[in-house]
Structure formats: C-alpha cells, structure tokens
Design a protein around this nucleic acid. Structure first.
Lengths: 120, 120
DNA sequence: ATAGAGGTTCGATGTGTATCGTAGATGTCG
DNA sequence: CGACATCTACGATACACATCGAACCTCTAT
C-alpha cells in the first residue's frame, strides 16, 4: 500500500530532442487532441481521454508523445497519469506550446487546403 | 516583356488554415529544411534550394507548403520565387514560426528518442 | 522556329505508421 | 487466492505519402 509513491515512466532528456521530432509528434490529429485535453485537464489517466480511437491506439499515441518529450507519465497505483512537460518544454522550445495550444480554430474549411483567390 | 509583372500562385486564406495542417506540413524533414532555407535566404527560386531529394520531390513539397499556407510563390519570368508568408503567419499563429525556426539543435542523439533515466 | 533551361504533373513504387483485436502484465479489492 | 480493472505489447492490416523518372509545359534566347 504505497500510494504516495509515484514511479515515472522513462522519458528522454529534452535537450536531446529535435524540434522536428516534436512537430512530427504533434502532426497527428489524435495526438494533438490528447495534448489539448491534457492542457485543459492538467493531468489525466489514459482511460479518461475521450477520443474516437481504441484504447490500444491511445496507449500507442501516449507512448509516442512520451518518447518525443512532450508528455510525462506517472504510475499511480493502478492507473497511469499523464501530464504535459510544460516548464521543460518552455525552456527547450520557448513559446512553442503557447503558440500551438493558443491557436484559434480555422474560419471555415480548414483541413481541406483548397486554393482560391477570387472566391468562386 | 513584362518582367515587373508578378503572378502569384493560388494559395489559401490563412484564416481557413488549421494549426494541425501547419504542423503536418512542418513535420516532414525536407519541408522543414526548405522553410529554414527560405528563412535565411529571404526568398529563393525552387532550383536554388540545395536538398538531398530530386527536383520533382522539391516541387511536390513546395506545393504542400503553399497549400498549407506557409509559403507563397511568384512567377517571375521563367522562374518561380518562393517566400515565407511571415506577416500573415504571425497574425494567424503568433510566435509559432519564431519558436520553430529559433529552436536550437539537439544536444546528442535527437531523433532516436531513446529512453533512459539512469544514463546506463 | 528551334533549342534549352526551369518547374510541374503523372504514374508507380516502397516505406512508414495509424488503427484494431487479442493476449499478457501489473495492481486492487473481496 | 481468485475476480476484476487499467493499461501495454504484439501481430496484422490498410492507408497515407515521400520519392523517383519520364513526359510535358512555359518562358527566354538564338
């Protein structure tokens, strides 16, 4: 019964993480959504994340986020609580997280990337 | 002989571009390198970009960058000059470009994302 | 007009990876 | 101990896309 003891899952030193790795991790829609959820929730167990994919897929994405240095995960009893590595990320990539999480949603047809100039 | 006349290739309104689209565009190493080159060079014709991939591939990446709102391309005579949409990007995603282009390279084994905690 | 340089488009190929279901590992409770 | 919960690991599958070479297009120069 050592509930206060928290074991942290292995994670990389942010100094060894390239910006490209972070961008690649955030490029996936599900992972970006996970980061958004963790941003508003502060921290959350893996199962509490409401996502349109299966449990094993969420687990896989959390692993990717952890290995890219974005998220840390603690073993708290039976559950695994994940959280964004805010301070460390801010030191390594100043302003990055704020600019991404603070981005306003697109006006109309965002992802489509449809070109135009005369608004047919 | 209208050399001063510049035609701009079709590009999306940045208001309709999601942050996820931008991140996805920057997730590719070659595209990130293109953006870095354009950042330092200010502007450049497609062929002047020194990259470890073929011409057609560069063309494809520039198209992706243009469709995701990161780059604008002008037809100047025979060549196509590309440039980063700095001001517009800064208005749409404040601080994003600066935090990405200003990121320092990793210390040692960046992309590998090898976990550790005791420095075996 | 003819040739040439600069870029794009097209089809094909190969690799990476997001996804799922099931089985296994670990911890909690009765 | 045995039942149940949470989550991860493992194959297997399918789709997205980075890449290339060749053909094509559009200007410029001769």
């Amino acid at each position: 019964m050592r509930m206060t003891e928290e074991t942290r899952l292995p994670q990389p030193d942010l100094a060894t993480v390239e910006i490209g790795t972070v961008l690649q991790a955030l490029a996936d829609p599900v992972r970006l959504q996970i980061v958004r959820l963790l941003d508003t929730a502060g921290e959350a167990p893996c199962g509490a994340l409401e996502l349109p994919v299966g449990r094993s897929t969420v687990s896989h994405h959390l692993r990717t986020l952890r290995e890219s240095g974005l998220v840390e995960t603690h073993l708290r009893g039976n559950t695994r609580v994940s959280r964004i590595r805010r301070e460390e990320l801010e030191r390594r990539f100043p302003g990055l997280l704020a600019s991404i999480l603070g981005a306003a949603p697109a006006a109309r047809g965002g992802t489509a990337a449809d070109d135009e100039e005369g608004e047919r």
